[in-house]
Design a protein around this nucleic acid. Structure first.
Lengths: 149, 149
DNA sequence: CTTGAACCTCTAGTCGCTAGAGGAATTAGG
DNA sequence: CCTAATTCCTCTAGCGACTAGAGGTTCAAG
């Protein structure tokens, strides 16, 4: 399973080819040896590392967190307090985002349910956006909901 | 309430000063008249529009959607079908993201609950990330969970 | 040995802001 | 009226985590 091309590594890891090169460029993934012609040749260690990153990204960890966790896993004798702390922080973050999205979902539901399917002037969707008093949504301090990739 | 400075508009709308200028630069907010010295002077229409944008952003709409919705609200006689479609799409998107985050939350909970608080080598957090087989999480096609701003 | 897919580097773009430099205008107080 | 503090101005660059595309090279199958 050694001497994988970047395409094969991509297929096995679920990480796109340009993303793998990007990870290398920012030091998330060790630069592999090259073929005589200059193409990347990966081994199993790369595949493992990339799966670790992919899995962590799926769980919403930032690349910095994953770098820290990866460093920790290379020092198996250390206390896992730090790893625990990072994971708990991430959990709290996810829970906070879920709560925010639930509130958003609630208001969106109200909007579309009350839409009379008539003309814009009577449209609940537009009205709700225009007049904040029509809804129950609280403005957070400066937190905003953002799109997922 | 006319002739507001950008700072006052910011305070009343909850949108930060640089963000207001950014909105102007990308055509989301009409450029206001200027004072003799060249500073922006806003009226009530700007405040209303900005609150509309702010509210929409809080609900996770993209600026393109908000531009479309804003355009619609300027044509009150048109059918609100389009507005309805945009809002429903947004609702589906939010629901999809909630579902994704719930799965993520579930796995994070398992991770931190099973952490033995010992050394890294036995740490569930690291193990789960390293070995995908240890968890129940399914990799989506290429969807990833991203941070909120 | 040819062909076509996969690879290479590099730059620039995405979204929605945010930060900072370096300077001009405004406003409140004395 | 003058000063000092605050707010405002433009401009460029940066964030995270990629994604897209141009223009060229290498590899693997037949």
């Amino acid at each position: 399973m050694s001497d994988m091309s970047i395409g094969r590594l991509s297929g096995l890891s679920g990480v796109k080819v340009p993303t793998i090169r990007y990870y290398e460029s920012i030091g998330m993934l060790e630069a592999p040896p090259r073929s005589p012609g200059g193409q990347r040749r990966y081994g199993d260690a790369h595949l493992e590392r990339l799966r670790f990153i992919r899995h962590g990204r799926d769980l919403g960890f930032g690349l910095d967190d994953l770098r820290a966790l990866q460093d920790l896993s290379n020092r198996p004798d250390q206390s896992c307090e730090e790893a625990d702390r990072i994971a708990r922080r991430q959990l709290l973050d996810v829970e906070r985002r879920i709560a925010g999205l639930e509130a958003v979902r609630h208001e969106l539901l109200r909007m579309v349910e009350r839409c009379s399917h008539g003309v814009v002037d009577e449209c609940r969707v537009i009205q709700t956006l225009s007049d904040h008093a029509l809804c129950e949504h609280e403005h957070g301090e400066d937190q905003t909901v953002s799109k997922a990739g």
